[in-house]
Each structure stands twice: as C-alpha cells, then as structure tokens.
C-alpha cells in the first residue's frame, strides 16, 4: 500500500491545546482531509478533540481554524478533499481586526 506524508502545523494557541508543534503524519494514499482529522483525533488531547476536531466534524464549519496550503476550509464538503503528498495542514486560531 502506498503512503503519503502530510505536514501538520498547530499555530498559536492551537499548539498549547494540542500539546505539540509541527508534525509529519503518514497516511495511506489516497486519503482525504476527513481521514487525516480522524487519524489525528486518535492521539490528540481530549481538549483539542472537543474544541477543534469535534466542531469541525459535526458542527457548522467555522472558516478560520483549518487551512490547507494557505486555503481556508469553509465547507463541510471540503473534508472529502483528497490530500496530496507534501500538503501543509494548519490549525490556526481565529483572527479579526479592523
């Protein structure tokens, strides 16, 4: 079975909740963003699952806390998006200004 590697980054307060910084996650190829989230959920702290992963999966998608290659994930359908080897997935704290 072929695999791919995806870079996962926890930016700002996300890394405190996740208890980690950057990591490289190996996944079977093909895999989707949803597959990645489910895999991450297996060993992330309960607080991260409750505050970040669970809302992403089951609640309305908030457009600021998950990005792939600098693109915001804004719709639930994007969880079925296939990942590509070398993708950068970032969990980011939300921001507003102005």
């Amino acid at each position: 079975m072929s695999t791919m590697k995806v870079n996962v980054r926890y930016a700002g307060m996300m890394r405190i909740i996740a208890g980690r910084q950057d990591s490289v996650v190996e996944l079977p190829s093909p895999s989707t963003l949803r597959d990645l989230l489910l895999l991450l959920a297996k060993d992330l702290p309960e607080e991260f699952k409750r505050k970040v992963i669970d809302p992403l999966q089951f609640d309305s998608v908030f457009p600021m806390i998950l990005m792939i290659n600098r693109e915001n994930i804004r719709e639930r359908a994007q969880f079925e998006r296939p990942l590509t080897d070398g993708d950068l997935v970032i969990f980011v704290p939300p921001m507003e200004g102005g």
Binding site: R9, A11, G12, M13, M14, M64, M67, R70, I90, V92, P93, P94, M95, G97
Partner: peptide, 9 residues
C-alpha cells in the same frame, strides 16, 4: 494570537 493566523495566511 492573531500573529499566528496572519502568518499562516
């Protein structure tokens, strides 16, 4: 913490 979000963008 906005620094992290702005930088990610």
């Amino acid at each position: 913490d906005g620094v992290a979000m702005i930088n990610a963008n």
